[in-house]
């Protein structure tokens, strides 16, 4: 797989450099390590098929993978995971040193709160506040208008603000925002 390249970067190098960050985004979208790996691999297979046509360096390639991640996530949500319901009692995994103490509690509570969002809100939240994309970049990835991104982000933040799962954490403000 190393013989294909986009603007001089091999696919292997791209995966080595960027796939941990992409997997973390996929985890926040799916809330599950296995599904995150599955989602990322499907997105990477789609990307690999177009690798020789992705010109301009790593950034366009990463934008393509992010778009594939989100569209696949949305598609799977419809076809595969719609039976899932949010739960406040997600199975706990042993805390590992790499995640730090208390990470399991935070993870459980944030995932519970994220499960209460619509898939569009969740995707916007991950792209804007985890991947640190601008509103316009988020809109481009999702194929929606910038206004839609703003309204989805606003609703997502409001939902997190009122989520009971996050009452014990430093979470978004509960008081009125200044106008």
């Amino acid at each position: 797989m190393t013989d294909r390249s986009a603007a001089g970067t091999t696919f292997d190098d791209f995966v080595a450099a960027r796939s941990t960050a992409l997997w973390r985004s996929a985890f926040l979208l799916t809330g599950d390590r296995h599904k995150a790996e599955d989602l990322l691999q499907v997105a990477l297979v789609k990307t690999w098929r177009r690798w020789d046509r992705l010109t301009g360096g790593v950034e366009p390639a990463e934008a393509y993978v992010r778009r594939a991640l989100v569209t696949t996530y949305t598609d799977w949500w419809r076809r595969r995971w719609r039976g899932e319901v949010p739960t406040g009692e997600l199975p706990e995994r042993p805390t590992t040193g790499r995640d730090g103490p208390g990470a399991v509690d935070v993870r459980r509570d944030v995932l519970t709160a994220l499960a209460g969002l619509s898939r569009g809100q969740r995707a916007v939240l991950v792209l804007r506040y985890f991947d640190d994309l601008t509103e316009q970049q988020t809109a481009d990835v999702l194929g929606v208008s910038r206004g839609t991104v703003k309204s989805q982000a606003s609703r997502a933040l409001a939902a997190l603000r009122s989520s009971p799962a996050l009452t014990d954490h430093d979470h978004p403000a509960t008081e009125e925002e200044p106008s």
């Binding site: 997997w23 985004s25 995640d99 935070v106 640190d132």
Partner: peptide, 24 residues
């Protein structure tokens, strides 16, 4: 929100990049 999301996403996946390339 950024801090909560950072703390929620595990630091590393189970697969190393080379294994992921092989899987893809």
């Amino acid at each position: 929100v950024k801090d909560l999301l950072q703390r929620t996403a595990p630091a590393r996946p189970d697969l190393a990049p080379a294994e992921r390339v092989a899987a893809v």
